[in-house]
Write a protein that binds this DNA or RNA. Sequence first.
DNA 1: GGTATTATTGCGAAAATTCGCATTTACGAA
DNA 2: TTCGTAAATGCGAATTTTCGCAATAATACC
Lengths: 172, 172
Amino acid sequence: MTITYPNTKVERRIRSLGFRLTPQRDLILRAVAARGEHATFDEIYADVRRAAPHISSATVYRNLEMFSRYRLIHGNEVAGGKVYELASEELHHHLICHTCWMDIKVPDAYVRKLFKALNKQTGFLVLGEHYVFMGLCPDCRQEAGDSLGRFSVYPKFRHASQKKEKKNEEKA
Amino acid sequence: MTITYPNTKVERRIRSLGFRLTPQRDLILRAVAARGEHATFDEIYADVRRAAPHISSATVYRNLEMFSRYRLIHGNEVAGGKVYELASEELHHHLICHTCWMDIKVPDAYVRKLFKALNKQTGFLVLGEHYVFMGLCPDCRQEAGDSLGRFSVYPKFRHASQKKEKKNEEKA
DNA sequence: GGTATTATTGCGAAAATTCGCATTTACGAA
DNA sequence: TTCGTAAATGCGAATTTTCGCAATAATACC
């Protein structure tokens, strides 16, 4: 995994959008980059705080949202919690197994084909650059067997606390 | 638009999962159904409260999450806020224009093709039944012109309050 | 129907997130 | 380099969302 921040391109981009590059923003971007692909708010905040103990959580919330909006980072809802990753040059999407959490990166080109086809049929131009598709990886798929009905697998939650509901899980 | 709840199928499903069908749950499902495709928490809570003023917001939160998890409803992050809709028999996905909010329903079969292709290439089985793809509808696409670069359009937020940032919007 | 079991509710407290506003500070222009 | 302007921060308050637990009530079983 390559950490692509610090990065003058990102800095230029922030300024060209009319935003200022503050030390706080720099730290936040570094933290997201250093964490790799699944940084949570808590992790980012903790990292940033280590370098700048006085930083306000509001600042981190605000900037994560701003960065997401302008696609300097990607924020995705995964397994009941939001995770962030630095936007990379190589556009890609994710296939995440909700049984074992394996994460397969898919180059954008693979998915872009569908979007082109959709465009032909509907005229709609899909712009999102970073989608997450949940499902079953090859191993877990095999384990689940062939009797894989429409409703037989339910997403698990990794981030949100879900102490209860276990009993129901089995009955289903 | 057809309201598909009350529905014995849904009721049976709740019970077969080991959950109980309480009056609160019934009201929540009715509210989601009646609201159509983009019900927010506030709307649902207000509707439910009208019929049962004593209902706790925690109950609504808990059940929306449970229903989503077991796909009796779909909860999607759209434009900075979560919106719910009753899961329908006809599987579908959404193409939402983040300029004018036009919402095009796409039958699952269209999208399923891509997922099959992905499956061939990666072995990964995509299970999600209700994805939302953001982009530009034909009209807004035209308005945006041909010089549509990778970074030229940014999602707007509909639900979250975003009073500021307007100046930056234009500069970009 | 009556009863036992246990999921679910409602409450209030806790935690997470957002907001408004005074202060600070990045950045462009002199 | 200094200065002026407006964006961004940090604070504390407000709001939203989650949590734990005692009380309630839906369901299965008789």
